[in-house]
Structures are given as structure tokens and as C-alpha cells.
Amino acid sequence: MTELLPQNQIDSFKARAAAIAHPHELIVDLLRAIQSHYGWVPDDGVLLTAVTLGILPVEVEELATFYDKIYRRAVGRRVIHVCDSICCWSTGAEMITEHLQKSLGINFGMTTADGAFTLLPSCCLGACGDAPAMMIGLTTYGKLTPQQIDEILLKERAAIAAAD
């Protein structure tokens, strides 16, 4: 099993926490670092954050459970956030969602059998001029059509394979 975060990053967060008056302000940064390295934030990730910053686990958990882009359950290698807010909805987001669900063979909240993708609905991604839109990882894709989605998924799958 992969480590939650490389030791040098833990040390760097410890040093930063010691140098500032309010170590709590690093909670989101550290949770995001763990998620970026480990894929999501398990209970041990909450604990590691608390220990590293010298604060209580509950102070971390009350943030981890609040933000919707901190994953407290296991997710696939890439999380797909499909926008369902007004601009995307009015320009075909439901059709886009259906296509994604069919191509991936999963519904919202599920992960593909090969562990590649988790599909989640999302509020507005700030890509309203390029609706309908989705975000995979931290990359936003707009003006989606079913054909484009197929190409994007192929590209993302290739990127996952290349990283292994």
C-alpha cells in the first residue's frame, strides 16, 4: 500500500506549521496534498494531518467532511465531476451524464470495475460559457459532445496506464 504522504512533505508541513501562529490554516493544504498523493483521505490521513499540524483530529474531520472536493471514501484514479448546474443543464448536461454513465457502466457515486474512474455530480464549475462541462481531476473540459467524451476518456485511460 502506498504511503499517505512522502516523509519530506510531512516534514515540510511540520516546519511550516511551527513557523506560523495559526497552524489550522494549513489543514486544507495538507488534506489536498494527501489526496493528491494517495488518491483520497482515509481515517489515517485525518490523523496524520492532525499530528503533523499539532491539532485535534476532530478539527481536521470537521473540514474534511465539509468540503465536497475532499474525498473521505476511496475513489478511482480519476474523479469525474459532471456539472449539473443551470448553464450546463440548459445545454444538455443530462444527455452528457447519460452518455458518461453508459460508457463507464456506472451511476453517480460509483467507481468503474478497473478502478479508473469515479463519477460524481458537481455544482457549477465556472465554465458556463463552455457548457456543458465536466472536470476530471483538476482539468476542466467544456463544450462536451458524446464523441468528445469518448476521446477524453481514452486519453485519460492512456494517461493512467502511462503513470503505472
Partner: peptide, 25 residues
């Protein structure tokens, strides 16, 4: 630069300040 982690409520300025402090926003 502070990178947030989602949720519309953070746009409310006092919620945003809690977010920056690392308190439940």
C-alpha cells in the same frame, strides 16, 4: 494564494474567512 476545496458557501465573506483560518467554513 489559498486553494479551496469546494462549496459555494465559501463565497460568503465570513465563511471564506473561516475557510482561510482552517475552521469549518
Amino acid at each position: 494564494v489559498h486553494r479551496s476545496a469546494g462549496r459555494y458557501i465559501l463565497g460568503e465573506e465570513t465563511s471564506l474567512l473561516n475557510g482561510l483560518e482552517g475552521r469549518r467554513p
